[in-house]
Design a protein around this nucleic acid. Structure first.
Length: 298
DNA sequence: AAGCGTTCCAACCGCACTCCC
DNA sequence: CGGGAGTGCGGTTGGAACGCT
C-alpha cells in the first residue's frame, strides 16, 4: 500500500502494508512455538518477508492473545482522559494502565474521539458558566483506579505536554491488579498433548477490522476456524505457562536453528501454503529457508 | 448508483533509549 | 567512554469504510 516514506535499502524485497492472514498465522504460530527473543532475526527464522520492527508491531498491537478488542468502555475512556491530562502523549504509559489496550489503539482513540470530546467539554463549561475551574476536573484527579500489571508510581515530571504542565510535579499512585494470562486460554490441547491455536477461545471479538460492522468476521480466525480447525503447532508443552505480561518467550524458550527450520517447513506443509514444495525440496528448505522462500515466491 | 468528503485505524517512519561489548 | 545493535515510543500517513448528497 505504500504508507509513509520510501523504505530504506535493507527493506527492499520485504512486504509492506497490511498483513495477510497467512502472515499473521505464521507469526503467531512461530511466536507461540519459539517466542520472540530477537525481533530482527524473527522474520527470517519464521520465513516472513517483513522487517523485525513490523513483526513486533503486528504482534504487540494486534496478535497478542491478551489484546482486548472492540469499543472502549466509558470507564476506559474516562481513564484515558484523566491520564492524558496528567501524562500528556505518553501513550505507552497510559496503555500500561489499561490492560489489553495498546498504545497505538489509545492514541487513535484519543485523536479520533476523546480529544474532540475534551475540547467540546471545555468549551461547554466556558460557555455555560464561565466557570473559572472549568478544566480542573479533567486536569487533575487522583482518583484513578486503573489496572496495570504491577504497582507503579507514575512520575509525570517528564511530561512535556503543554496540556498538563499544571500537574507536572504530581505523582499518582495507581492501584493495579496483576494480569494472569495463561497461554491455555489461547491454545487448546488435544488428546495427544499437542497444542493448537484456538482463535475463538482467545478473544470473542477478535477482529482485524474493528472499524467494520462485521468485526467478528476476522479473516485470520475465519480461515483458522474454517480451513484449519485442527491447526497443529506440534508439541510445545513448555509454552503452556507462558505469560506474556511477565515473560519474554524468547528469553526462556530455546530452539536450535535446525528445529526452527524444520518446524517452519512442517508449518508450511500443514497450512498447505505450498511455499516450500514437496519432500524433495524439504532439504533445501531446511538448509536455506529464506532463499528457498524467495525462489518459490518469484 | 455514483461521486465526493470525512472518519477511522493499521502500519509506517525516524528518533530516542537501553544494553552490551 | 564510545559505538553498534536491538528495541520502544510517538507522530504521521494513507487506504478502506462510512455517510452524505
Amino acid at each position: 500500500m505504500g504508507r509513509g516514506r520510501a523504505p530504506c535499502c535493507e527493506k527492499i524485497g520485504l512486504n509492506k502494508g497490511s498483513w495477510t492472514p497467512a502472515e499473521d498465522m505464521r507469526l503467531v504460530a512461530y511466536i507461540q512455538k519459539f517466542g520472540h527473543g530477537n525481533w530482527r532475526a524473527l522474520p527470517k527464522q519464521a520465513g516472513l518477508l517483513r522487517c523485525g520492527k513490523s513483526c513486533r508491531l503486528r504482534w504487540i498491537n494486534y496478535l497478542r492473545p491478551d489484546i482486548k478488542r472492540g469499543n472502549f468502555s466509558k470507564d476506559e475512556e474516562d481513564t484515558i482522559i484523566k491520564l492524558h491530562s496528567l501524562l500528556g502523549n505518553k501513550w505507552s504509559k497510559i496503555a500500561s494502565c489499561l490492560p489489553g489496550r495498546t498504545d497505538n489503539e489509545i492514541k487513535n482513540v484519543w485523536n479520533t474521539h476523546l480529544k474532540k470530546r475534551v475540547v467540546s467539554t471545555k468549551q461547554q463549561n466556558i460557555d455555560s458558566s464561565n466557570d473559572q475551574q472549568s478544566d480542573v476536573e479533567i486536569k487533575t484527579s487522583n482518583n484513578i483506579n486503573a489496572k496495570i500489571p504491577e504497582t507503579q508510581t507514575i512520575d509525570s515530571s517528564d511530561n512535556q505536554s503543554g496540556e498538563s504542565k499544571d500537574a507536572s510535579e504530581e505523582k499518582i499512585e495507581i492501584v493495579i491488579e496483576p494480569i494472569s494470562l495463561d497461554m491455555s486460554t489461547f491454545m487448546l490441547d488435544d488428546e495427544d498433548g499437542d497444542f493448537f491455536i484456538s482463535p475463538s477461545s482467545s478473544n470473542e471479538s477478535y477482529s482485524t477490522n474493528t472499524n467494520n460492522k462485521d468485526q467478528d468476521q476476522d479473516p485470520l480466525w475465519s480461515i483458522m476456524d474454517e480451513e484449519y480447525p485442527d491447526f497443529m503447532l506440534g508439541d510445545c508443552e513448555e509454552q503452556t505457562n507462558y505469560n506474556p505480561t511477565t515473560t519474554t518467550l524468547g528469553e526462556e524458550s530455546s530452539c536450535s536453528e535446525d528445529e526452527s527450520k524444520r518446524w517452519l517447513a512442517n508449518l508450511e506443509k500443514e497450512l498447505d501454503l505450498d511455499l516450500w514444495g514437496d519432500e524433495d525440496n524439504l532439504q533445501q528448505s531446511l538448509s536455506d529457508p529464506v532463499s528457498c522462500y524467495f525462489q518459490r515466491a518469484l
